[in-house]
């Protein structure tokens, strides 16, 4: 059989490739998505290309009058503007560097894959459109258009959330959430935690995992039982002014906080050295907030 012959030959491929995959297979589930990014620095390229389309192809208004730093993050009185991600294309091997994250474009906004809610049927609202799923590694820039994306299929509003920020797709394994986490301005914690995730609805479950547990793949998580105290902490974080991560003395990540609402939507916060907090899918922005007091 032809397929069998290929599978047999695959058994002899370069062990370096296998080692890379093997490393990925061993990473605990909650960390995987975020681990991919340093592994593939080029992963953001698609957002960079889409940024081109969003700015030029779709004629979205640019932000004026603000000064961008070297990373393109703009700090102004209105907050921190997070631009569409831009990554330089490798000159040496452009084709090999291009890759897809799950995303689609709707009403000029790019919605990128965020998380899966396994029992999330109740979240699915009205169908808002359908993504072509036609964008792949070889799609030219001029084809990054409204209604296209690297994932195909109908997308829906997420009940209880603003479609401007969050949409979803439905799969047999759960509801995949997509978040418009670029080309946005963030002024306070509330702009994300409240406007996007509606955390004031209530936190049903909170878990903490230390960075060393993540690194060692122990799977050890600690449940936070003092939810009232945690809610007060989130309220304070809502008021905290957003900072551009690169402009702070924020150190390394020390822990992870997973705040899960009753509807299954989970907000992943990264607890950083020197008392900073980030939303995991928005590393450009942070808030200065003491966090040790909320840990078990």
């Amino acid at each position: 059989m032809k397929g069998e012959r290929l599978l047999h030959a695959l058994g002899e491929v370069d062990e370096d490739y296998l080692a890379q995959v093997d490393k990925l297979r061993r990473i605990p589930a909650k960390k995987k998505r975020h681990t991919w990014i340093p592994l593939v620095a080029c992963l953001c390229l698609v957002a960079g290309v889409a940024a081109w389309a969003l700015r030029g192809g779709m004629g979205l208004p640019g932000k004026e009058g603000d000064q961008a730093n070297s990373n393109g993050i703009t700090e102004s009185t209105q907050g921190i503007y997070v631009p569409p991600l831009e990554v330089e294309l490798s000159q040496a091997q452009p084709e090999a560097m291009i890759d897809m994250i799950g995303f689609f474009i709707y009403q000029g906004r790019l919605y990128a894959q965020m998380d899966v809610v396994e029992q999330g049927q109740d979240l699915v609202g009205e169908q808002l459109g359908e993504s072509s799923g036609t964008i792949d590694e070889w799609t030219s820039e001029d084809q990054y258009l409204e209604g296209t994306g690297s994932v195909g299929g109908p997308f829906y509003e997420v009940k209880g959330y603003d479609p401007k920020y969050m949409l979803c797709m439905v799969y047999d394994y759960g509801v995949e959430l997509f978040w418009n986490n670029c080309d946005i301005t963030v002024s306070t914690g509330g702009d994300v935690l409240e406007e996007v995730f509606r955390l004031s609805d209530g936190i049903a479950r909170a878990e903490f995992q230390s960075e060393s547990d993540v690194q060692k793949d122990t799977g050890h998580m600690t449940t936070i039982t003092r939810l009232n105290q945690l809610a007060a902490w989130v309220n304070a974080l809502d008021q905290a002014p957003a900072l551009a991560s690169t402009e702070t003395d924020m150190g390394q990540c020390l822990g992870h906080l997973y705040l899960t609402k009753a509807d299954g939507v989970t907000v992943h916060l990264r607890l950083m050295e020197h008392g900073y907090v980030q939303v995991a899918e928005l590393p450009e922005v942070c808030w200065q907030m003491e966090w040790k007091s909320i840990l078990p």
């Binding site: 297979r25 990473i27 991919w36 593939v40 080029c42 890759d99 899966v116 799923g133």
Partner: peptide, 30 residues
Amino acid sequence: SPQARALFLGRYYYFDPLREVARYCGMGEG
């Protein structure tokens, strides 16, 4: 790309279920 390679080898070298490969490659099953 490293991601595409992981997807391909995860599926055809390690024979991981599609759902599992999708999960550790950070994408949906579809």
